[in-house]
Design a protein around this nucleic acid. Structure first.
Lengths: 347, 347
DNA sequence: CTGAAAGCGCTTACAG
DNA sequence: CTGAAAGCGCTTACAG
């Protein structure tokens, strides 16, 4: 009794267990193994079982490169975020990445540094990997970026932002209304008796600007709008900058009775500067932040802020993308996850 | 005059400009284009020029999947870090990623959550993509992980840690001596007159434990070691936990005159708790941290800490990996980037 | 429902 | 130094 000669591997073989190894062992064709393993219907249930068992026994794992080459789709999902130095985006990334990995996708991260041409370049590089899907922060991109996305036909979900106009839009997005959130916090401060509410912002990205518009709108409605209370600084947001801005505002506008910072790191810096300067918060001036970042609940006094559901946004956006990548249509085009005013000691 | 018929594309063609498009247009074989574009020597310089020009004109970009399949090496670099919620590792990731991207590599991130079997599983998944290189945090991994790394023959650089024994080791790593850093801060506090120096730690990962050993060692040398001054908590590090630990230590060890926290977030939390409790720092008790994270220089009082060169570690490790991936041998096996005591107000 | 064959777009011995 | 050919490990019309 002669056993069949072992299959002769070419000298270029990588040593992996391949699809044809499984096919040979299961006594079917490679096509059938391929179809059975991908759960394509139109395969005999009994064969599916046999193939699955054999493939498991042999420890077969499909080669992503071969699959990508043959099918024109990788198991990569590209994600574009502005910065890694802002917890906000790291939370987004973390949640999205966890959800996608559970579904078998590898995350390809790109950091745009709030630079639209860097964003375009990154997208171009990522598109080479023929990602199965794309997650991108915000709705503002330059025209070539929009064109790239459209031409690639890669399913895409936008993070953090929702379109302002109510019209039906083919753009999928998960986020909340930044303008509303800005207005809501402003009204909240107003209701608690503050009348001269300054708005202090850094970075000045599109979402920060929307919060500014919300602040303006709320104050205009209340007849309390004063353009000299806008403090806009294009520098990156940081604790140190928040402290600096606080000092400047208190010097130049001693009658300000509240400051609404566009991000918690600025507000935390302001709180610490107040301690240093001996300015009492909230009795002399109220401080409010945005995002409810780490540490805001530990500050002295604890920081009043707007809690934003960034982890849930990351997860829900990944979920929506998974639906799109399966060729299905998500229930909603725009998913509004809202925000929450967190009233603490600083106001 | 008939122009040659346009090349008939099969119905499976993706519409990309391919290597053979370039070959045809340049009047050479695909092999030559492949070799010329990859800068393989043994190609006529004149041909290199022609091929490069044509490929640029046609906008040719190599397909990563095809390249990976044919060469058994992708342009991915896998990186394994414990957490995305600790700035430390995000800084590492950011720096490494930036350096690698500049050299044409895509970063494949994996988050292990300090879990050795999750780490192994992630590595297994990443290895499927046949990464050109691997960056991994720390030197402690379970045996199967070590085996996976060795068998894969993928060049690898370890981050943050250096081996304790001086013997020549084939393991490449970039970091600093955690034990030394722990001892140095302890001696620093001792020199400034502190005698009852507590060590408070969370997470208890291998690097934290090394700092603990450094603290022990320094106090033993000074004859001031007291095991009841060790406060170890396996929970994740956070501001809130730091505050809690501070409160407990001050209650149970009122004679403690300094607390050395294993991470700045704990120390920042302690500083804020001290403010709340009306305990004066540093006059009643000195506080020191580790890492010099964001905000430590803004605290009230500002935080004395150990500055660790994490961005430089990420960059240098990526650089070392690039060398290895080119088949060259780095100048050093172990790169020690040191640390720095930052004396501020809290001690 | 299944299989043989072609093809995805590269790289790489091999021969010259 | 260059080219023809085989091969990497899959998927997918096409035919049955």
């Amino acid at each position: 009794m002669l056993s069949p000669p072992p299959p002769i591997k070419s000298h270029r073989a990588t040593g992996r267990v391949t699809l044809s190894d499984v096919a040979r062992a299961a006594g079917v064709s490679s096509s059938t193994v391929s179809r059975a393993l991908r759960g394509e219907r139109a395969v005999d249930p009994l064969l599916i079982e046999r193939v699955t068992a054999v493939s498991r026994m042999l420890g077969y794992v499909p080669d992503p490169a071969a699959r990508a080459l043959a099918s024109a789709h990788s198991n990569h999902v590209a994600i574009l975020i502005p910065l890694l130095s802002n917890t906000l985006f790291v939370d987004l990334l973390d949640a999205a990445q966890t959800t996608l990995r559970a579904a078998g996708f590898q995350t390809l991260m790109g950091v745009t540094h709030y630079n639209e041409s860097e964003e375009e370049q990154l997208l171009r590089e990522q598109l080479l990997h023929r990602p199965a899907g794309l997650l991108i922060t915000g709705l503002d991109h330059n025209p070539s970026t929009h064109k790239l996305m459209a031409n690639s036909r890669v399913p895409c979900v936008h993070l953090m932002d929702l379109p302002t106009d109510q019209q039906a839009d083919a753009t999928y997005c998960v986020g909340f209304r930044q303008t509303d959130a800005g207005a809501a916090m402003t009204r909240h401060l107003f209701k608690r008796g503050r009348r001269r509410i300054a708005f202090a912002a850094a970075q000045l990205d599109p979402r920060v600007m929307q919060r500014l518009y919300g602040w303006r709108q709320a104050l205009q409605e209340a007849g309390a709008y004063d353009p000299t209370l806008e403090w806009l600084n294009p520098a990156p947001s940081s604790l140190a900058l928040g402290g600096l801005m606080f000092e400047q505002i208190m010097q130049q506008h001693p009658k300000v009775d509240a400051i609404f910072f566009c991000n918690d790191d600025l507000a935390q810096g302001a709180l610490l500067a107040a301690l240093r300067l001996g300015i009492s918060v909230p009795s002399e001036v109220a401080i409010a932040g945005f995002n409810d970042l780490t540490g805001s609940d530990q500050m002295v006094p604890t920081l009043t802020t707007v809690r934003t559901p960034r982890a849930r946004i990351g997860e829900a956006a990944a979920q929506m993308l998974l639906t799109l990548m399966q060729g299905e249509v998500p229930a909603l085009t725009h998913l509004d996850l809202g925000y929450e005013i967190v009233q603490r000691e600083s106001s």
